[in-house]
Design a protein around this nucleic acid. Structure first.
Length: 906
RNA sequence: GCGAGGUUAGCUCAGCGGUAGAGCACUUGCUUCACACGCAAGGGGUCGCAGGUUCGAACCCUGCACCUCGCACCA
C-alpha cells in the first residue's frame, strides 16, 4: 500500500478483485481435491426466476450463502456453491407474451403457435436470462459459475421427464378428472400451494325460491355468488334441521335463468350433513361445477354437473341470455339485478369472505372440473421423520413444526399446467392407448399430451439434477461431483417456499438418492421497508440493490443487511443500514491506513516480555471476539457475528487500543531513537498486525472486497503459502480462538484484562470531569493521579495520552489536593483535575451529591439482599460472594465521594 | 377456528433466573498529526397488562390485550 486515499473507494476495488478471483479459478470446486482432511462443503443456490432481477431479498439470501461458502473455504473445505436459474413457467411465459404484445408482434399466443412462441422465449432467455446471475457477481457471490445450471437444460429436462416416467410406473402419478384451482387469467390449473386466501368485500345475497310441491312456500338461500345460480343442481339442507326436514325430496324452481322451461328449472331439495344450519339461512345452493364442497355433495347425491363458466371466467350461454358472455364479476351484479327484478331478492348485505387468489396472476381462482395429472407424494414418512427426529435441522427450528404440519395433512399435487413453456409431459395418446416414456412411441398417430409440468416439479430435483444425476445407477456411481458434494451441507432460502420447494426437495431426495438432500436449512426473514411493509413494485419501496452498490459499495450493502437481519426475524430495511456499512468499511480502511503510516516491518513476532497491559487487553478481547463469532456461526446467527465484530473492531480496537498505542508509536516517520522505546514500538506494531490480520480474516466472509484489498495492501499475504492466504485472503486460515498455551505465552489473564479495563474506566471518568468543567477534549490540562502503586513509564504515557493530560502527575497517597479540587476515583486511584480558581463549588457539590445518592441507592439494594436471611441460605456460594464483593465496591465508591465532598470549601 | 412468532430507550433489535444493553437518532463539546463516512462526554427504559413460582423475574408458569405470519374455512 503506497498511496492510500483518505476514504475507501469501493468501485474499482470490487471489480478488480472479482475478476481476479474468477480468473484464478478461486470459486471452482474440484471433486478430486476432496479428501478426509479436506471435506466437501456444498450449497445449491435457490434458483432465481430466469426473468428476475436482483432484489433485496436476493441480497439477503445470497449474502448468507456467500458468507457460509467463504468461511468454509477458509476452514480448508472444498467448496461448491452451485448457481443457476429456474425457467419459472407461468412468470416467464407471461413476461415474453406481454413483451410481444406490447411490441405488436402478436395479439394472442395462438398467433404464433406453440413452437414459435417457445422459440421466442428461448431467444429471450438467451438474451436476458443471465441478468440476475451477473448481478450476483456485483454482490460478490462466490459461485462456481462453470457449473451454472438452468432447469430447462437438455440433461436437466431428461431428469425431470425420467422422474415423471418413474413415478408413473410406480403408480404415484395418475391422471384424473377432479376439481382443481383454475386461474382464469393464466388459463391453467394451479396447485393448492399457488392459491392464497384473501379477504374480499362483497355481498351476501338472500334470495327465495318457491317449493314446487307446496306453492306459496318459499325457501330463502344465502349466497355470495348469484351468477352461479344457473349451475345449481340441488338445494341442500341439514337432515337434522327441523325447519326443513319435511321438504327434503321436494323440489324448488331454480331462480335463473328465469326464461328456462319450468321442467329444466326443477331441482331437488336434498339432505346433506355438510350443511351448517346455523350459517346463513341453513339452505345451501349446490353448484357442483363451481365449488369444491358442492362437487363432493354432487357425487354423494349423483347430481348432474352444469358448467356455466368459460376457462377465462365468462358466463356461458347455459347461464341464460342475460348473463351469457359477461365476465363473472359483471355477471354477479347482473344476476343480483335479475333476482331483484323478479322479486326474488330478499336482501343483499355487505359481507367479507375469504377468496382464493392465484398467487401469481392475483385474480380469484375458479374451482373447476378438469382432467389433470396428479402426484401422490413419495417418501412422505421418511421426509417427515427426518426433520421431526432432528436428523435434518431447521434454523430457526420453529419452521420444523410448520413443515411437520404440512407433511401430515398433505394432499396430492396437481402437476400439469396448461402452458407452453416448461417440461412437456412425457405421455402420448392414441385413441384409448396411453404411453408414458422418455421418447415418443413408434407407430403412427400418437399425440403428446399438450400440457407441461409445474415448475416446482423440476426444481424439486435441483440438489442432484444440477450435479449431473441421471437416475442410472451405473452412470451416477461414476459421477465424481455427485459423490463428492451430495448431499449438500446447507440450504438457505425463504420460509415462503417451504412447501413449494424445501419439502418437495426432501421427498425427492429420499425417493431418488435415498436420504437427505441437505443437512441444514436456514430460513431467512422477509425484507420489509422501515414501516414494516413488504417490498413491492407498486409501493415503490423496493430500492434497487445495484443502485445501493454503486452508491455505497457491495461490502457496505452486505454488512448493512446482515447487521439488520437477526435469525428468524423479518428485516426492516433502511438505507441508513447500508450507510452504516459504508461508514464501517471506511473505518476499517482508515485503521489500516493508520498502521501503514507508521511503516515498520509487518507481522513481526510478538515478544511477550514487551507487552503492555493494553496489548494484553486487546489480545484478550480479540480472543473473546473470535469465540463469540464462532459460536454465532454455529447457530447461524449472522447478525450476532457482525455485531461482535463491529464492537470488537470499532469500540475496543479503534476507540481504546489504537488511541492507547499512539504515545508509544510516536509521530509517523519519526521512530524513537531510544532502543528500548523503539523495541516497545516495534512490538506494538507486531500486536497491531496480529490483530489486523485476524480482523481481516474474520471479516472476509462478510466484506470480501475490502478485506482482500487490505490483505494485499498490508502485505499480510507475504510469507504465506499460495493456497493458504498467499495468493488471496479467500483461502487464508479461518481464525481459531487462542488455546491455553497461547494465552499463557502472551500472559493473558483475567486479572491483567481487568487491570487494563480499570485504567480505561478511569480515563472515562477523567474525561467526564473535563466535560463537566467544560474543558474541550482537544485542550491539554494538568491531571494528578494519586495512587499507591506508581505506573511504569509506558503505562503512564498511555494514561496521559488517553486523558490528553499535560502533565499527568503521579503522587503517593499522603498527598492532598487543594480544597475543592474535582476528583474521580476507582480502583486504580484518585484522579484529580486541579482547576485553580475555576471551580464552581456549589455546582461541584451538586454533582457529587447526585453521585452519592446514586451510589447509596446501590449500596442499599445490595445490603437489602444480603440482609435477607433466606438469601444467604439459599443462594449459590459464587452468587453470594459476588454480591458481597459488589457491596464492598459500592461502599468504596461511597467513601471516595464522601471524601471528595469533605474536601470542598465550606 | 388451529398454530407459530412478537410486544425491552424515540427507532431497529440483543439479553431469556442474579447490578437493564447495542446501533441509529438526540443533547453538548471538539477540523486532537487514521477516519467529520470522524472523536469525546451525556440524557433517555415502572422490560405490553394482571396474577403466580422463587431468596431473587425482562427472563419460568397461568390468564388477558394488541401486532405479524402461516394453516384451515360455512355457502
Amino acid at each position: 500500500m503506497t498511496e492510500i486515499p483518505k476514504a475507501y473507494e469501493p468501485q474499482s476495488v470490487e471489480s478488480k478483485w472479482y475478476e481476479f478471483w474468477v480468473e484464478q479459478g478461486c470459486f471452482t470446486a474440484d471433486p478430486a481435491r476432496v479428501s478426509a482432511t479436506r471435506p466437501a462443503y456444498s450449497i445449491v443456490i435457490p434458483p432465481p426466476n430466469v426473468t428476475g432481477v436482483l432484489t433485496l431479498g436476493h441480497v439477503l439470501n445470497n449474502t448468507i450463502q456467500d458468507i457460509l461458502a467463504r468461511k468454509a473455504r477458509m476452514e480448508g473445505k472444498e467448496v461448491l456453491w452451485l448457481p443457476g436459474t429456474d425457467h419459472a413457467g407461468i412468470a416467464t411465459q407471461n413476461v415474453v407474451e406481454k413483451t410481444l404484445r406490447k411490441e405488436g408482434v402478436i395479439k394472442h399466443r395462438d398467433d404464433l403457435g406453440r413452437e414459435a412462441l417457445v422459440a421466442r422465449i428461448w431467444d429471450w432467455k438467451e438474451k436476458y436470462g443471465g441478468i440476475i446471475l451477473r448481478q450476483l457477481r456485483a454482490l460478490g457471490a462466490s459461485c462456481d459459475w462453470s457449473r451454472t445450471r438452468f432447469t430447462m437444460d437438455a440433461d436437466y429436462s431428461r431428469c425431470v421427464q425420467g422422474v415423471f416416467v418413474d413415478l408413473y410406473r410406480k403408480g404415484l402419478i395418475y391422471r384424473g378428472k377432479r376439481m382443481v384451482n383454475w386461474c382464469p387469467a393464466s388459463l391453467t390449473a394451479l396447485s393448492d400451494e399457488e392459491v392464497v386466501m384473501k379477504e374480499q368485500k362483497g355481498f351476501m345475497y338472500h334470495f327465495r325460491v318457491e317449493v314446487v310441491e307446496h306453492p306459496g312456500t318459499y325457501l330463502t338461500i344465502a349466497t355470495t355468488r348469484p351468477e352461479t345460480i344457473p349451475a345449481d343442481t340441488a338445494v341442500a339442507v341439514n337432515p337434522k334441521d327441523p325447519r326443513y326436514q319435511h321438504l327434503v325430496g321436494r323440489h324448488v324452481l331454480r331462480a335463473l335463468p328465469a326464461d328456462a322451461p319450468r321442467e329444466a328449472r326443477m331441482i331437488p331439495i336434498i339432505a346433506d350433513d355438510h350443511v351448517d344450519f346455523e350459517f346463513g339461512t341453513g339452505v345451501l345452493k349446490v353448484t357442483p361445477a363451481h365449488d369444491k364442497a358442492d362437487f363432493d355433495i354432487g357425487l354423494r347425491h349423483k347430481l348432474p354437473v352444469i358448467d356455466v363458466l368459460t376457462p377465462d371466467g365468462k358466463l356461458t350461454a347455459e347461464a341464460g341470455a342475460e348473463l351469457a358472455g359477461l365476465d363473472r364479476f359483471a355477471g354477479r351484479k347482473k344476476a343480483a339485478e335479475l333476482l331483484e327484478a323478479a322479486g326474488a331478492l330478499v336482501k343483499a348485505e355487505p359481507y367479507v369472505n375469504n377468496v382464493g387468489f392465484s398467487e401469481r396472476a392475483d385474480v380469484p381462482v375458479e374451482p373447476r372440473l378438469s382432467e389433470q395429472w396428479f402426484l401422490r407424494y413419495p417418501s412422505v414418512e421418511a421426509s417427515r421423520q427426518c426433520v421431526a427426529g432432528g436428523t435434518m435441522r431447521f434454523f430457526p427450528d420453529r419452521w420444523a413444526k410448520v413443515y411437520d404440519h404440512w407433511m401430515t395433512g398433505i394432499q396430492d399435487w396437481c402437476i400439469s399446467r396448461q402452458l407452453w413453456w416448461g417440461h412437456r409431459i412425457p405421455v402420448w395418446y392414441r385413441g384409448a392407448e396411453i404411453h408414458c416414456g422418455l421418447d415418443e412411441p413408434s407407430g403412427e398417430g400418437w399425440a403428446q399430451d399438450p400440457d407441461v409440468l409445474d415448475t416446482w416439479f423440476s426444481s424439486w430435483l435441483w440438489p442432484f439434477a444440477t450435479m449431473g444425476w441421471t437416475g442410472n445407477p451405473g452412470t451416477d456411481g461414476g459421477n465424481a461431483t455427485l459423490r463428492a458434494f451430495y448431499p449438500t451441507t446447507d440450504l438457505v432460502t425463504g420460509p415462503d417456499i417451504i412447501f413449494f420447494w424445501v419439502a418437495r426437495m426432501i421427498m425427492a431426495g429420499f425417493e431418488y438418492m435415498g436420504g437427505l438432500p441437505f443437512q441444514n436449512v436456514y430460513f431467512t426473514g422477509i425484507i420489509r421497508d422501515k414501516q414494516g411493509r413488504k417490498m413491492s413494485k407498486s409501493l415503490g419501496n423496493s430500492p434497487d440493490p445495484l443502485d445501493l452498490i454503486a452508491k455505497y459499495g457491495a461490502d457496505a450493502l452486505r454488512f448493512g443487511v446482515m447487521r439488520a437481519a437477526p435469525l428468524g426475524q423479518d428485516v426492516l430495511f433502511d438505507e441508513q443500514a447500508v450507510e452504516l456499512g459504508r461508514n464501517f468499511c471506511n473505518k476499517l480502511w482508515n485503521a489500516c491506513r493508520f498502521r501503514q503510516l507508521h511503516a515498520g516491518a509487518t507481522e513481526q513476532e510478538i515478544r511477550p516480555g514487551l507487552l503492555t497491559s493494553d496489548d494484553r487487553w486487546i489480545l484478550s478481547r480479540l480472543d473473546v471476539a473470535i469465540r463469540e463469532v464462532n459460536e454465532a456461526f454455529a447457530g447461524y446467527r449472522f447478525s450476532d457475528a457482525t455485531a461482535t465484530l463491529y464492537r470488537f473492531f470499532w469500540s475496543e480496537y479503534c476507540d481504546w487500543y489504537i488511541e492507547a498505542s499512539k504515545p508509544v508509536l510516536g509521530v509517523p516517520g519519526e521512530p524513537p531513537s531510544d532502543p528500548s522505546r523503539a523495541a516497545l514500538r516495534d512490538n506494538k506494531l507486531a500486536v497491531i498486525d496480529f490483530v489486523l490480520a485476524h480482523v481481516l480474516r474474520l471479516f472476509h466472509p462478510f466484506l470480501p472486497f475490502i478485506t482482500e484489498e487490505l490483505w494485499h495492501g498490508m502485505g499480510f499475504q507475504h510469507d504465506l503459502p499460495g493456497d493458504r492466504g498467499g495468493r488471496t485472503i479467500l483461502f487464508a486460515v479461518w481464525p481459531k480462538a487462542l488455546d491455553d498455551a497461547e494465552r499463557e505465552h502472551f500472559g493473558l489473564t483475567a486479572a491483567a484484562e481487568a487491570e487494563a479495563q480499570a485504567r480505561f474506566d478511569l480515563v472515562t471518568l477523567g474525561r467526564n470531569l473535563r466535560a463537566q468543567f467544560s474543558i474541550a477534549s482537544n485542550k491539554r490540562v494538568r491531571f494528578v493521579l494519586r495512587s499507591p502503586v506508581a505506573l511504569p513509564p509506558e503505562e503512564h504515557e498511555i494514561l496521559r495520552g488517553l486523558l490528553n493530560a499535560e502533565p499527568l502527575e503521579q503522587v503517593p497517597p499522603p498527598w492532598q489536593p487543594p480544597q475543592g479540587t474535582p476528583v474521580a476515583s476507582n480502583v486504580v486511584g484518585d484522579l484529580y483535575l486541579p482547576l485553580e480558581g475555576l471551580v464552581d463549588v456549589a455546582a461541584e457539590r451538586t454533582r457529587l451529591d447526585k453521585d452519592l445518592a446514586r451510589i447509596r441507592a446501590e449500596v442499599a439494594k445490595v445490603q437489602d439482599k444480603l440482609g435477607n436471611p433466606a438469601f444467604a441460605q439459599k443462594v449459590p456460594a459464587t452468587v453470594l460472594a459476588e454480591h458481597q464483593q459488589r457491596l464492598v465496591d459500592w461502599q468504596t465508591k461511597e467513601r471516595q465521594v464522601i471524601e471528595a465532598l469533605a474536601n470542598l470549601p465550606a
